[in-house]
Design a protein around this nucleic acid. Structure first.
Lengths: 179, 179
DNA sequence: TCATGACACATGAATCTTCATGAGCTAACT
DNA sequence: AGTTAGCTCATGAAGATTCATGTGTCATGA
């Protein structure tokens, strides 16, 4: 995430030095399994395009998971739950709890009680969080537009629909061992 | 098909319960930012389909990064370099070094000297590693086929081409094109 | 030959993530 | 009610990843 999940670009500003001296990958003539494996290609593409934006995040001094939380919160008036955020950000719930600890410490979000269910903690942005995300959203939208412009012949809407349907889980099965 | 209203079928089962009960119909332009953000949709789709396969990995007692290394090694006769594997597996080089430590400890791979360059460590699978990956490859191919069969109207080849071109770095880190 | 710079991999401290579990709360059934 | 099951979030120990370096190797050119 993988999702996801990563910062590359040690060659942000200066860069260009490495003109593929060794084979970065590419072993022998025959293609590797992974080079035609859909799951790998998706992870790789996602990683690559995300890495482009992560450069912007670095410059803003915002960590990737922090950005994901802020982006997920943007537009929410009532706040999101911890578990909901974890799911949205592709993280485990305890990871999110601790990430939120840090974000609270940094003044980006605050915890609030839920009106109906006292188990639930609602996470809302502070003004500082809102200010941070506002700027980043501009960059994110610009980057997305630029990215899409690189692939003029694909329909963005159609692609997004496909991705959404792939993300919809088919059989979220907890199979208890029946045998 | 159901299209725009389906935009929220991915709404997981998490339910941002802030969906006010009275406004049951939301103007479709007013979803969360992330729900129409390409980078997020890619990460989410990648995460979801990978998670399906991770179930198989768990059953086999193989960690995700271990699988990635084995899959990347499969088919390589000369072995891969540590840096090459890190790149292939979307990890940092120190992470790969330590992951390989564990895999060596578990008898899945071995480190070998490079014939021409003594800086380089070549990673090759042990028989045990090969046996492990052989079984997993069968499952992976089956899963991929099943996954693709869920989306009959998309051309797999075309999709993969798109993903490959997205993964190719645009700006700085130019990379050779391979057949 | 000796600098110099780039490269490949390893290492340790700090950080982040995960696993397993705990405590509090809600709902449903008896 | 009382019981039970399931849910939400937090926590601590264990594990994994990253950042910043360190060590050794290679290549180039003075």
């Amino acid at each position: 995430m993988l999702m996801d999940t990563l910062t590359r670009d040690r060659d942000m500003d200066i860069a260009l030095s490495n003109e593929a001296p060794h084979s970065s990958v590419v072993p022998s003539g025959e293609g590797r399994f992974v080079d035609d494996y859909l799951l790998y290609l998706m992870a790789r593409a996602s990683h690559a395009v995300s890495a482009e934006f992560h450069t912007t995040l670095r410059r803003a001094g915002v960590q990737v998971p922090v950005w994901r939380v802020l982006a997920s919160l943007s537009g929410s008036t009532t706040g999101e739950t911890v578990t909901g955020l974890a799911e949205a950000c592709l993280l485990q719930q305890p990871t999110m709890t601790k990430l939120l600890d840090r974000m609270v410490r940094d003044g980006l979000v605050k915890r609030m009680p839920d009106a109906r269910d006292r188990r639930v903690v609602r996470i809302a942005m502070t003004p500082r969080g809102e200010a941070t995300v506002r700027e980043l959203l501009v960059s994110a939208k610009a980057h997305e537009a630029e990215l899409l412009s690189r692939f003029p012949d694909i329909g963005a809407h159609r692609l997004k629909e496909l991705l959404r349907s792939m993300a919809a889980r088919p059989a979220r099965g907890r199979r208890r061992e029946a045998a």
